[in-house]
Design a protein around this nucleic acid. Sequence first.
DNA 1: CTGTTAGCGCCTTCAT
DNA 2: ATGAAGGCGCTAACAG
Lengths: 390, 390
Amino acid sequence: MKREVTIRDVAQAARVSPSTVSNLLNGRDARMRPGTRERITRTIHELGYRPSRVARQLRTGRAHVVGLVVPSVANPFWGGFARAVESAAAAHGRQVLLCNSERDPDRERGYVEELWAGGARSVVLGTSLPSLEHLASFVERGLRLVAFDREPQPADPASLRGVSVDNLCGGRLATRHLLDLGHTRIAFLSGAIATVSRQRRLAGYTEALTDAGIAVRAEFVWADEGVGYGDIDAAELGRRGMETLLALPEPPTGVVAINDMYAMGACAAVRAAGLAVPGTPGEPGVSVVGFDDVMLAGLFHPPLTTVRQPLTEMAAAALAALDEMERDGEQVAEGDGPHNADGAHNGDGAHEGAAASGVPVDVPRRSVLMTPELVVRSSTVALDSPRARP
Amino acid sequence: MKREVTIRDVAQAARVSPSTVSNLLNGRDARMRPGTRERITRTIHELGYRPSRVARQLRTGRAHVVGLVVPSVANPFWGGFARAVESAAAAHGRQVLLCNSERDPDRERGYVEELWAGGARSVVLGTSLPSLEHLASFVERGLRLVAFDREPQPADPASLRGVSVDNLCGGRLATRHLLDLGHTRIAFLSGAIATVSRQRRLAGYTEALTDAGIAVRAEFVWADEGVGYGDIDAAELGRRGMETLLALPEPPTGVVAINDMYAMGACAAVRAAGLAVPGTPGEPGVSVVGFDDVMLAGLFHPPLTTVRQPLTEMAAAALAALDEMERDGEQVAEGDGPHNADGAHNGDGAHEGAAASGVPVDVPRRSVLMTPELVVRSSTVALDSPRARP
DNA sequence: CTGTTAGCGCCTTCAT
DNA sequence: ATGAAGGCGCTAACAG
């Protein structure tokens, strides 16, 4: 376990000074004598020299690592997202520091503190809590923060970027699917609606029902404030919620679940009640639509119909946003127009206009809004669908 | 985005020298004047000082981050493991750098190289390839490597530690479960048996059958070398394999799957063939046993019977091993007896004895072998089980 | 008990 | 086209 090869070892062996080696390493070799360049390159190779990122970072202040904070990678959805982020990060030459917040703002803050102390200045945050004030101090100090699955809020720090799916649209998509199947008693199954994205999905559900001329029944929106939103036992919560819904005097025949885990739990409850998923003309049952399209959704029995989030594109957009923020940080954000990831809508969030000033000082909180996609896996006409549309 | 608070700012404000602050920070404050100590502590708090890990690491050479290399966190099993590792790491004050190798030795090597360049000297490797020679050079240079789910092999570097479940036992457990149910035509469903753990599980299957006096039929071991072991499409592979098995003139009635993904895929295939999972006395079908007990296994329909790996304990053991290696690295490994994680068996791997030397120079490759647990979720008597044991 | 000194490995003006 | 010098923030002897 001998000493590492340093830049000076290389310099010595190549009979040049350390700075020359450094120059080569950092692309300042425009007018370098070919002989020198070649000699250094060879020496580097021979000695197996690898620049120390630690030293470099200490010197430059730039970190090559981005923090990823998610509720829990044990949850297939977040696992899928983590993989996508890691992959996108690798493409940008960056490494990913993993943090499982369990949706606890305190832990979240603690992790960000660790990340900051470790020199990281870029964080992808996968927790859509409505408030981000527990992280505000870091953002003020220069933390580049991209919130995933969380459309920007009025109170957010100005520099925050967001990448999310259009949850309103997603909620509408899921609900409309059930409406199209002929359902009229459609429930919304969720834990506490304590995140922005959940609020939006519920709004989409409400909108779709209203558009169809169906009143939203309070007892059909299972969103118990008390249960929390544990990512681990989401399925269990879904099961429990579904049980409650089934116990209603007039239970729903269709269910929009807040995510696939809830949907799977709901399916279990439906079957446990002796009903089918989905219902068929000959057999009473319940149709369930999930959200996310997690890895195992297609394997489920029946294969889960769900609203898909384009994770790969979203992760790429998140990293692109981080890069862009870094670039902008060097000059005074002379915006070079919104960069859009492929196939993404671009909705910029609320604007922050200077109240009385004539100059447009608005700092548009740029946020990428991706389009969700309904993945229909097991479509059956609803049991009691007297007015199924063609 | 002003300058960070440094140790010197604290020193200045507290009217002491930087080293004094450093001493306090590093627990060398045994005989420090209480006044000084208190003054420094307060100043640190007031200024919100956080020591820079980067600088500290550059100085000490010790990194606070451990690398985690897994095939893909998108896979629920690895996601669950990643969460457990991150959790254990946090308990040890360490952060986790996430890498998705996709089981590609080249990528694996590349990642370890990155990790090394970043200063990390501890890696948890979640890829049980039979050979580790692509990482040998790093281990020689001092990389502390813990292999997960991979019992030590003769050719492994001497310093390698292993943490894994007793896969032989696991394979036996699964197989015996089906035997106990009365099955006699039991298949083993896997992709390429290219990892140590898969070899062991297959061995367990073979052993259990042999013990029961049942000959292993080659056509019942679906382990096509050609398919690879993609973690993403494992389920698809399972489905395909099961189709092949069902097409046999005398298909199996029980299946031991290499993991839960394969098991789920197999279930889908069975149902697609118009059979039940599991078979019931009145209805022909196939019993399937999985491996791992991933998060969604219990939600499956039917709930998956599987062999559980104690991930939390295993992750804790992995981090404990890392810590132990670090401590041992300081002196010449005067082994202080094997440290065992709770409830773990201790099997030390093969020994490396000096051939002719009289002195016992063997460096025991310490490896923790955990006990797997059969989780029976839907047990049904096999359809064609004439000789079901009591 | 506390301060001084000397780097860890690298980058970056500024001279030559 | 190259080199010398200084310092990023911190720690670890060693003096005082």
